[in-house]
Design a protein around this nucleic acid. Structure first.
Length: 802
RNA sequence: GGCGGCGUAUCCGAAUUGGCACAGGAAGCGGACUUAAAAUCCGCCGACCCCCCGGGGUUUGUGGGUUCGAAUCCCACCGCCGCCACCA
């Protein structure tokens, strides 16, 4: 018989040990059961866990535990995203080594996860900084390379001065700051390694439709990031210095070829490679170079701060508009981006607000070409195929749908995005070899090289004779050397014993690549490794991945809406094309959990509003913390921490504990009747079935807060029954069933307490976490009598009891 | 500027998707038990207006609309949050 008082601490540590010894949560591929892969984003080992971790991993744990009880074969693993800069910074601060800091934190976090009672299969743990893991990251890199998806090229890249490394576009956030250290990012021209994610841009966009289990806003963010634009490429013929046609073509991308007749000037980005050549030694050189230099001085931040004053200068050159043979001047302007489209733009000031502002500032013509249906100008210009008006009477550009005017044979057609006129102009250009329909993406290739030590070494060799040579698979892993003094700011480039090597191709002296890979390469496939975590012959067996994958439920923070989730989708598609697996998308259902706040702000040490999980465990136990963090709000919403709230949760768990232990004593003592069937018993019986249905349903919908609320209602109904019926007359079968059902349904939330009640109080053989989830009888949940409201004109006018 | 989300009692939140608005918890108040306290158990618990003291009416950020019926759908506005942003 258990203690009368609920004492979480002894119970929790006791069962944690029992579960660990029995490998209770070991996952096996069981062909006789449906599978469920429940995964939470693996943590970065920066110190001990915080409340955000508690919330994230508790959600996953409840889902995983209930799935086991419902008869699924469940995979619920954990690991660590262990490479990365914070480890280097911490090592510098503490005059230590990144590995030491990282492994120590992993130990701390692992202990905390165990103390929280999470049901992980610890035999599948992955640490991305272990050679047994990262060697397969290198292997995958080589496979990508074989497939032509690895590229080393020179281009303007994002440089974080504080992290002293380059960053991927996705890692530049907010107003042009580093995702990790929030420093302002600079632009530098550097040669770097890329994964050609743009090869998959269309599929990454299209397949968002295959993800009905993802939040709409995450899909919208990814679609915006990929940024598909339909339009046309148009070729303009360049004129020479004397203004005569040179025969050379210069291409632009436009989403509005229907406005081509309104093009009155042509723009180049300040970084455009032709700019210097065009103005060298001319009277325009000084003005143009002033614009170029001003733009280059501006940081990425300033250029990304939305709309600003547009600056420009005439280059002295002209291009010929292919639709009307008009010579239009070529300008340089700082609002044209070199890394989108072709770095050159046809300007149509009447149809584009930016071009409009630029034209007004520099006195360039603004002829109308697409006019709104309700614009009086339409009547005035109706039927005019030639340009009779060179300047619109408008205050701003018009970019909507309307009627084409002053556009030769296209005059009178519908103009606008995806319009008849747009198609007609594109077709006309294509016939004459002056353009064609085209699609442009905002997505850029993924810059994966980092000039940092604590990461996965890129398996490549620079040979003076053979060029870039991949490290042969047999030579993997390229081991990250441990004898490095990070406190002196050393990187692999400071260690000749690392980089001095021989070329795998010709055998001559060569230099090993000293950059490491972006940590997001490590996190792009770890969930596949869990399926076959100890394989030392390949990253994973196809059969095992095909059994467990895709992840049925993925849970993590919204901050990965683009970064990690996009990269993982990309990896999955490439690995599929490499024949290593056979599905298209890695995560079928995605839950993005909200943040845990205190006093309306995110918890942080600098704000001094951190509530440490260990402090709450010490006070109330892990079960109370788990149940509380799920009870306070739906999982996708932010949650405001309240100390009074935790005490309330502890009170309720104690109340359940008392009910179960006391009624079990009554049952054992035979103090009551076998079955009573009176009104009070009927009410409790009905409530028990109603709540079973509600809890089952709510966990499926991730409404953990209402699932717990329903169990509280059942607890209240159970106490009502005890108050209504005297001891000795109580229905023993009923109160026993209520106690058992409560224990089973609460087990995923408060696993230790329920295990204690199940095995010690009830005396059942085997774990409650292997027991079957309670069935419910929908008809038993329906009341015999029902009060119906009678509405007349939507107002309650009476009530009838049926 | 664009896109997306949100707004319900003192606070956190229900309302399974158009059908009795506010379940559950917290806070607060009262009672039982106790010499007393804690713990526990029981009960009460939004506001405003009207009232023949039985009760009735209004109220889901604001204002409209659709509907027999709206917290829920539509339009406009206000407020808060997030993401993107000179992407041609």
């Amino acid at each position: 018989m258990s203690d009368r008082k609920y004492n979480p601490h002894d119970i929790e540590t006791k069962w944690q040990q029992v579960w660990a010894d029995a490998h209770l949560y070991h996952a096996t591929e069981d062909a006789g059961k449906p599978k469920k892969y429940v995964l939470e984003m693996f943590p970065y080992p920066s110190g001990d866990i915080h409340m955000g971790h508690v919330r994230n991993y508790t959600i996953g744990d409840v889902v995983a535990r209930q799935a086991v009880m419902k008869g699924y074969s469940v995979l619920h693993p954990i690991g660590w995203d262990a490479f990365g800069l914070p480890a280097e910074n911490a090592a510098i601060k503490s005059n230590s080594h990144p590995a030491k800091w990282t492994y120590a934190n992993i130990e701390t976090q692992a202990a905390s996860f165990k103390r929280m009672g999470f049901s992980y299969d610890w035999d599948r743990t992955v640490k991305s900084c272990d050679p047994e893991y990262y060697r397969w990251g290198q292997y995958i890199f080589l496979k990508f390379w074989e497939r032509g998806l690895v590229e080393r090229k020179s281009s303007p890249v994002n440089w974080c001065p504080d992290c002293a490394t380059v960053l991927a576009n996705e890692q530049v956030v907010g107003d042009g700051v580093c995702w990790r250290c929030k420093s302002h990012v600079q632009k530098r021209e550097l040669e770097q390694w890329y994964f050609k994610i743009t090869d998959y841009a269309q599929e990454l966009l299209d397949d968002l439709d295959k993800l009905p289990g993802w939040p709409e806003r995450v899909k919208t963010m990814q679609a915006n990031w990929i940024g598909r634009s339909e339009g046309a490429e148009v070729e303009f013929e360049l004129c020479d210095v004397a203004g005569e046609p040179s025969g050379e073509k210069i291409t632009v991308f436009t989403t509005r070829p229907d406005t081509l007749f309104g093009c009155t000037f042509f723009l180049l980005a300040p970084e455009h490679p032709r700019v210097k050549e065009f103005v060298a030694g001319t009277q325009y050189e000084a003005d143009v170079m002033a614009v170029v230099e001003k733009a280059s001085r501006e940081t990425a931040v300033e250029r990304q701060l939305g709309e600003r004053e547009k600056n420009g200068a005439f280059t002295g050159r002209y291009v010929i508009n292919p639709v009307n043979g008009e010579k239009v001047p070529v300008w340089v302007s700082d609002y044209v981006l070199m890394d989108y489209g072709t770095g050159a733009v046809m300007a149509v000031p009447s149809g584009d607000q930016r071009d409009f502002e630029f034209a007004r500032k520099y006195g360039l013509a603004i002829p109308p070409v697409v006019v709104a249906d309700d614009d009086p100008l339409l009547a005035e210009l109706s039927g005019a195929t030639d340009r009779v008006m060179a300047d619109v009477p408008w205050d701003e550009a018009f970019n909507g749908d309307g009627v084409m005017v002053q556009s030769a044979q296209f005059t009178g057609m519908r103009g606008g995005k995806a319009s008849e006129g747009m198609q007609a102009v594109t077709a006309w250009l294509a016939e004459r070899g002056a353009g064609d329909a085209s699609i442009n993406f905002r997505l850029r290739d993924w810059l994966i090289s980092r000039q940092r030590y604590w990461g996965n070494p890129i398996p490549a060799v620079h040979c003076p004779t053979c060029g870039l040579v991949p490290v042969p698979e047999a030579d993997l892993p390229v081991v990250l050397p441990m004898d490095i003094d990070i406190t002196k700011g050393e990187t692999l480039a400071d260690h000749p014993e690392f980089y001095e090597t021989t070329c795998p191709k010709c055998g001559g002296a060569a230099k090993r690549e000293t950059d490491t890979m972006d940590t997001f390469t490590c996190s792009s496939w770890y969930y596949m490794r869990y399926c076959d975590a100890r394989n030392d012959a390949m990253p994973f067996e196809k059969d095992k991945v095909d059994y467990w994958m895709p992840v049925d439920q993925y849970i993590g923070g919204i901050e990965h809406a683009i970064l990690h989730l996009l990269y993982s989708r990309f990896f999955t598609k490439v690995l599929r094309d490499l024949g290593m697996l056979s599905f298209d998308e890695p995560f079928t259902n995605l839950l993005t959990q909200g943040m845990v706040k205190k006093d309306g702000e995110t918890m942080s040490k600098s704000k001094g509003n951190v509530v440490a999980p260990e402090e709450m465990i010490a006070k109330f136990g892990a079960d109370t913390l788990r149940a509380y963090i799920l009870f306070m709000a739906p999982p996708d919403k932010d949650l405001e921490w309240s100390y009074e709230g935790v005490e309330g949760m502890y009170r309720w768990l104690s109340r359940v504990w008392r009910f179960v232990t006391e009624t079990t004593e009554e049952v054992h003592a035979g103090c009551g009747v076998a079955a009573s069937g009176d009104a009070a018993a009927k009410t409790l019986h009905r409530e028990m079935h109603r709540v079973t249905g509600k809890v089952t349903d709510d966990i499926e919908r991730f409404q953990f807060n209402t699932a717990i609320a329903a169990m509280m209602e059942l607890t209240n109904a159970a106490y009502d029954y005890r108050n209504a019926v005297a001891a000795g007359s109580r229905d023993l079968a009923l109160i026993k069933e209520v106690a058992e059902r409560l224990t089973l349904m609460l087990a995923p939330f408060a696993p230790h307490m329920c295990e204690e009640l199940w095995r010690e109080t009830f005396g059942v053989e085997g774990s409650v976490h292997r027991a079957s989830w309670p069935e419910f009888d929908a008809s038993a949940a329906v009341a015999d009598e029902l009060e119906l409201a009678v509405q007349v004109n939507g107002k309650v006018r009476g009530k009838v009891t049926v």
